[in-house]
Design a protein around this nucleic acid. Structure first.
Lengths: 202, 202
DNA sequence: CGGATTTTAGTTCAGTTGTTCTATAATGCA
DNA sequence: TGCATTATAGAACAACTGAACTAAAATCCG
């Protein structure tokens, strides 16, 4: 064998995520990454390939540790509660986001996916995963009567995905509690039946 | 007086919009702008200041000729029709966007506003303008009975703004007709009363 | 016509970009 | 103990970045 690496790969990915998340792909220089991760340029290139490959790993790391994790936690809940908990968490994250970093996936959807077919595919796949989670919970909710049947499960899930994207964009420019909560509140009114009992927020 | 300029300022701004819109702020180099606009570097700096100032003018030009114009056209329509026409146009633009450029304002919200307080202010102001348009039409719709009163005009308008942002993000990564139309359809179901007669898609 | 003024046309500049290179250090296996 | 292999460290590279500079050209006012 040979000399073992001195760095913790996960820690390096965390640092890379931090860079790309807050400054974007083009806005992050390799020197930024070197400074943040603490390891040298050679090690970085040796371990990850190039800047693009590192971004790919970082985005993957973010998706798994943040988004996929949230889905796994919420999909076990009762239908209505699952969607409620999901958006309550999004709201909490968005309002506590002092640096206005938003969601790294949404940021990627805007500033890297359109210029790179491979990244577009990656981002689209994650979005489908989120949509599938919504479809699953909405379908179950319609079955047990906690979610309106006035709109198809497919359309409702698409709507929730759209709202999610919208909240994440607004969180970067107008992260005001009244705005974001208003959006979620009206979303839950949509899920309710006509005679809906208002909005259950979280 | 002195020598008159040889270029048409509006044409230059159109070209600048084209650059910044498709490649983003950081992704666009001054040389890209020089090539696209046709004028020389010196002329560009002389006429507009620096890259940032040109971006500001370009964004302004986009907002006025695209967004503000749409609002002006729609706000004259009957409440429900105004909102229907607005989203029908958004849908048409998003689905016909072969280059996946999305909306320049939303792109700005993600990749320039968070790093520049002045741009954040500009973008936020335009978003408020859109929201105000929604509030105005929703209020009128609630008054004449074409829009549900189950949710406050404020919340409904916020919701519409969120949906708009969401559609514009998805248009860059998953510009599929079924998805975008599904989002709009469910949005209109929300606007309808409980016994709603379905969705009027322009 | 002549001088003031401003746009044009390239070139040039210092700094930064992503990436690679050379050399050194540290490990496991023979 | 070498030998092969891999990680480290930092300098170096060419290309590109936004911006400024030097001249020449074109107009208007007197």
């Amino acid at each position: 064998m040979a000399r073992p690496r001195e760095f913790d790969e996960e820690a390096v990915l965390d640092a890379a995520v931090e860079c790309f998340w807050s400054r974007g792909y083009e806005g992050t220089s390799v020197r930024d990454l070197i400074e943040r991760t603490g390891l040298t340029g050679a090690s970085l290139y040796n371990a990850f390939g190039d800047k693009r490959a590192l971004y790919q790993r970082a985005l993957d790391h973010y998706v798994e540790s943040s988004i996929a994790d949230r889905i796994r936690r919420c999909e076990k809940l009762a239908p209505r509660e699952a969607i409620g908990a999901f958006f309550a968490e999004i709201l909490k994250r968005s309002l506590g986001d002092r640096a206005h970093k938003g969601c790294m996936l949404v940021n990627a959807a805007i500033d890297v996916a359109p210029h790179d077919p491979e990244f577009q595919e990656v981002v689209a796949t994650v979005l489908v995963r989120i949509e599938d989670f919504f479809v699953d919970r909405v379908t179950a909710g319609q079955a047990n009567g906690t979610i309106t049947q006035a709109v198809s499960a497919t359309n409702l899930a698409q709507h929730l995905l759209g709202i999610l994207m919208g909240i994440r964009v607004l969180a970067r420019v107008r992260p005001q509690r009244a705005l974001l909560e208003g959006i979620v509140a009206s979303t839950f009114a949509l899920l309710d039946d006509a005679d809906g009992n208002g909005m259950k927020l979280s």
